[in-house]
């Protein structure tokens, strides 16, 4: 997982390096700060379980898939190194499940819906749907990794992980839509940065 994560993040660094502009830099910083903060906010879901947002789709909507990949990977690295959250050995898997699936896969889902629906409505619907799908896919990917690592049988891991994350996905979708909606209202130009 580390190897796959390094390859994709490395590619993202190259892409970003080629295209990054002056106005992207504060956006990357603010998104990193916001996503770090938002990931601390566990909200109760069901039966003594909580969930928090991830933010991959949110950051990709503003920055595009590759610059967003750098933001998300840095957030997970800081959590593991400075806050002992997630772990160093699991960092590769965490970057893939909670970062790349949102920033890359989620971004293209968002883009597809946004273009199909069009306008502000397209942006908001795309944001919500992509955020939900990306979070659930991340959970499914995590279940597959647990299974292939021999931790739990697939028949156990898959329904358990997908089930609870269908609810957590609602948190992801609503925060993503609210933040994008607020920016659309107050500073729509911020959504027009070149996507990297």
């Amino acid at each position: 997982m580390w190897v796959i994560a390094i390859l994709i993040v490395g590619y993202a660094v190259r892409r970003t390096n080629e295209k990054l502009g002056e106005r992207h830099v504060p956006m990357m910083g603010v998104l990193a700060a916001f996503i770090f903060a938002a990931q601390m906010l566990n909200m109760p879901v069901a039966g003594g379980t909580s969930g928090h947002m991830l933010g991959g789709v949110l950051s990709a909507i503003f920055l595009g898939p590759f610059a967003a990949t750098i933001v998300m990977s840095t957030v997970f690295a800081v959590q593991a190194i400075f806050f002992q959250d997630g772990g160093i050995t699991a960092l590769g898997a965490n970057i893939i499940n909670m970062g790349l699936i949102g920033t890359i896969l989620g971004y293209y889902i968002y883009q597809g819906i946004q273009k199909a629906v069009g306008g502000e409505k397209g942006i908001l619907i795309g944001a919500g749907v992509a955020a939900w799908i990306a979070l659930v896919l991340g959970a499914i990917s995590c279940a597959l990794m647990l299974w292939t690592s021999g931790v739990v049988p697939l028949g156990v891991a898959l329904p358990a992980m997908a089930g609870i994350h269908m609810f957590i996905g609602l948190i992801e979708a609503s925060i993503t839509v609210v933040v994008v909606g607020m920016v659309l209202k107050s500073r729509p130009d911020l959504l027009e940065l070149q996507k990297i």
Binding site: G51, A139, C142, H165, I168
Partner: peptide, 14 residues
Amino acid sequence: SLFASSSPDGLERV
């Protein structure tokens, strides 16, 4: 964040 839920998250619950 001080008011965040301290219940286990999705993966921890599973």
